[in-house]
Design a protein around this nucleic acid. Structure first.
Lengths: 305, 305
DNA sequence: ACGTATCCATGAATTATGTTCATGTATTGG
DNA sequence: CCAATACATGAACATAATTCATGGATACGT
């Protein structure tokens, strides 16, 4: 009954001082505007204007409606603008899930580059999901998954953003420090420290120990990368981490990387997302930024501390 | 582009959880609603819902729109309610102009009765007008004029609300105190105290002194009724006031009323208003209340102090 | 697993609504 | 007093919204 058009008319007539002028501004004929007002006044049961001769004066009711128009119309107009932002893909939510413990610092770096350029994107990072990273994507719990283990799924899309080598980390005083590489069997007597995730998500098992049928003497888990490296440094165990991460910390902690097997364990970090989001501007831009940060990883690490 | 109907759809679909149910509630067919949404999404360039199978999930844009709807729709609905109040005449402005100095207390009494019954009427009292009371009415500066001197005008309407007698007030020790009446000539040697308004608006001149060609010895003006009575009481002059007002004060101030001329000066207080407002509910009600207060004047006065 | 009920989408037909055109009336200003 | 200006109005017209009929997809019960 009371439509946006009516509010626009009331506002414009109040601005212009005459219906004819307002009609002009609104790209209507004077007649159309007159009909519209007549219908509104009939519908509401009370006039908005007092016609005295050819000049108009707002009635109390009209004043009330004008105030409403001045409050509401800008909101509608702004909402349309916001919708246009969504449509252009410059606004949206980017909830990122992490399935890659050591990638956190890299991600922060990417975000630091990305966020200033996409101020209307609501970026957020999660590390825990009810049904795993893939499930979180499908449930819209997250919009993007950072993972070393892409899992092809209808409706999902994965893209590698950088390569890395998973290496064994040992104390610099460890027997293996300086070795060209390590064989699975050489870990049979070791304490292996990993992040607290399921064993079948650990590359050191999947791609190294398990194929060889080897088990470490003890398997301990630790949340924090820093603490893990401290433990390794003082000889309380060995760990498996990306080479770049080890190199980053090597300056401050006495640890050394050793290749896992003769050929090494080569991995890629992937970004996973729903197919529907592949074309979205701000999502594409994030992937671009992440790929660009491939080099950043090293430079950033080099300049760090 | 973004219309009220769209917001209603978004809100109702969100409430009901399905388009079909929402269409029902909105007295639309499912098809109409579907078409409407499709058109909106086309217009805005971004979907509001993500259709997965037969269930819907709001997109970010949709969430934004839903919030808008929850903010804006209640305002529109309330505005319609308010318009209905104006239409029924239970809401409006009643700016009252006073052209009758001594009526103020009577008016307060009327307002005290009226306002609780018409809570949505914005009552206000003014005593000064740029172009006189009539002009103020015609200019919408006021909506009602309280005056002892109605002035017939096209577009205006006056209605008497109570009769009173204008009397001379003298000190109880004055020679005239207790006289049956006073002749104009008897004021020739007196100091006459009046409110500070043009002489031709003073009844004591128009209806008493001027017809007899008499002038008082001195003419002084005073704003306040109380002060005026004090001056009269101590013999610094005489004044002309409504009899009921004199009687009201007689208990606390030693003054006495004396009839002006053998027949007395009989007056009526009128309420003046624009013809257009004659049928308005809250205006009629005010007149009714004012007429009812005719008796109240005396009882109120009797019980006062 | 299969049928059925439910839900949403869509094109064509229909209806409702808004807009214009043509014209009238009232008021203002020169 | 005439010309110009502004608003109102009825009928014709154009546009937009709604319905009808239908189809495809998905959940749900048996």
């Amino acid at each position: 009954m009371l439509e946006r058009g009516h509010l626009m008319i009331v506002r414009e007539v109040a601005r212009q001082g005459s219906m004819t002028a307002a009609a002009e501004k609104l790209h209507l004929t004077q007649s159309a505007l007159s009909h519209a007002m007549r219908k509104l006044e009939l519908g509401l049961g009370t006039p908005m204007w007092e016609r005295q001769g050819r000049s108009l004066r707002l009635t109390q009711a009209g004043t009330h409606l004008l105030e409403l128009a001045n409050r509401v119309l800008p909101q509608l107009e702004q909402a349309e603008q916001t919708m246009a932002d969504y449509a252009r893909g410059v606004r949206g939510s980017l909830h990122i899930g992490m399935e890659c413990h050591p990638c956190y610092q890299w991600l922060l770096k990417v975000m630091a580059l990305y966020m200033p350029q996409w101020p209307d994107v609501d970026v957020d990072v999660k590390q825990k999901f009810r049904f795993g990273g893939i499930g979180a994507l499908l449930d819209h719990e997250i919009d993007m998954l950072v993972t070393p283990d892409p899992e092809a799924q209808p409706g999902l899309y994965f893209e590698p953003v950088f390569d890395y080598e998973q290496v064994l980390v040992v104390s610099r005083s460890h027997a293996l420090a300086g070795a060209q590489f390590v064989e699975p069997a050489q870990l049979a007597g070791e304490v292996l420290i990993t992040y607290p995730v399921e064993t079948d998500r650990l590359d050191v098992y999947n791609l190294f120990l398990t194929p060889a049928g080897v088990h470490p003497r003890v398997h301990k888990t630790i949340e924090s990368t820093d603490l893990m490296l401290q433990m390794v440094a003082v000889g309380r165990g060995v760990a498996a981490l990306p080479r770049w991460l080890v190199e980053e910390h090597a300056a401050s902690v006495p640890v050394a990387p050793v290749r896992l097997g003769r050929l090494g364990v080569l991995k890629q970090i992937h970004l996973g997302l729903r197919e529907a989001d592949r074309e979205t501007g701000y999502v594409r831009a994030f992937i671009q930024t992440a790929r660009g940060a491939r080099e950043l990883r090293n430079t950033a690490i080099a300049t760090r501390d």
